[in-house]
Design a protein around this nucleic acid. Structure first.
Lengths: 171, 171
DNA sequence: CGCTCATTTCACAAAGTTGTGAAGTTAAGG
DNA sequence: CCTTAACTTCACAACTTTGTGAAATGAGCG
């Protein structure tokens, strides 16, 4: 209600607003440990119609060199958050956000949890099961194992929840 | 089984092994975005009997200056992972790991999720509910809201699980 | 009370990271 | 094939971050 929030949104007037949003969200991601350029590219893609942009578009909107775009894209496709497409009949590439998959990417820090668990288990053996330190370390390993299992459940429940939401909103 | 794993462990011979474990785990934490010195101090505390060490001990084991210890300690106590104690009758401080609390610390990235959700909601309004970009952004916001709720459940289930495990292992 | 030792603060040097320009590579289109 | 446009790689310079030594602070103990 509060005014005509954004009924006519995304016409030309709010390019600047969108850019501010992109930068703000990217800054958050950067704060959480993501490389800055990758975060900015990711945020720009998220806020783009079609969830896809070309190198030139990214370069222009973010005011960065093609080289920087290239580096960010390499990273994002390595971690599976985007893929590259080629519009046939042109020599420009389109980078498109894996919209469905990036939640998984986000939670698929499984790999990390697995590694941590392993290291901690080895540590606990080294310290000895009879020592306080060994027991503490073992419990920490246990926590990460527990987290791994929970993550799977979360993603399942998210799929269900999203489904339900989607069905309801298309009313 | 596989040999006398570590029945006699933590005698003097494996100080080096413990140190390797500490460094390995710290390196993982660093990789995940934690400051290096804080990670090393944290790992050292985890692997110490009593979950506590003095500044001098940390300085010696990690081969870092007292200044570096001080910086790491400041960070760790800010985020609530350790607290400082003073053995009465001495002028040395002991830094002790919040063993029960640090799991919470780990999952209490709630704050982050809240901020992200807020920014994304604003973004989705800006882009407009009718646009594809707006819908996508709204869904992302929804995901983080969902995650927040899930985190609470996880911590509850961990408490229960740990309880059960503890009871059983004291058999 | 003042001395002494433990911890903290601060300025700086060293090391690391990051984005750029320019040269290099690949592929579409004439 | 040769030209040209798009993307990538590479070396480097600017900028950050990080840990140190030295000086300052503060807390026990005589």
């Amino acid at each position: 209600m509060t005014g005509m929030t954004t009924t006519e949104a995304n016409k030309d007037g709010n390019e600047e607003g969108v850019s501010r949003f992109v930068e703000r969200f990217a800054a958050e991601l950067t704060g959480a440990g993501m490389q800055r350029m990758a975060a900015r590219v990711f945020a720009a893609l998220l806020a783009s119609e079609g969830a896809s942009m070309t190198s030139a578009e990214l370069s222009e909107q973010l005011r960065i060199s093609p080289a920087a775009v290239s580096g960010a894209i390499r990273y994002l496709s390595q971690v599976g958050m985007i893929s590259r497409e080629r519009d046939p009949g042109t020599r420009r590439e389109r980078y498109v956000l894996h919209n469905e998959l990036w939640y998984e990417t986000f939670t698929r820090r499984d790999q990390i949890l697995v590694r941590w668990e392993k290291i901690l288990r080895e540590g606990s053996e080294l310290l000895g099961p009879k020592t306080e330190a060994g027991a503490r370390t073992a419990e920490t390993a246990e926590f990460f194992a527990f987290l791994q299992r929970e993550m799977l459940g979360i993603m399942d429940r998210w799929a269900v929840y999203k489904e339900a939401r989607g069905a309801e909103s298309s009313f």
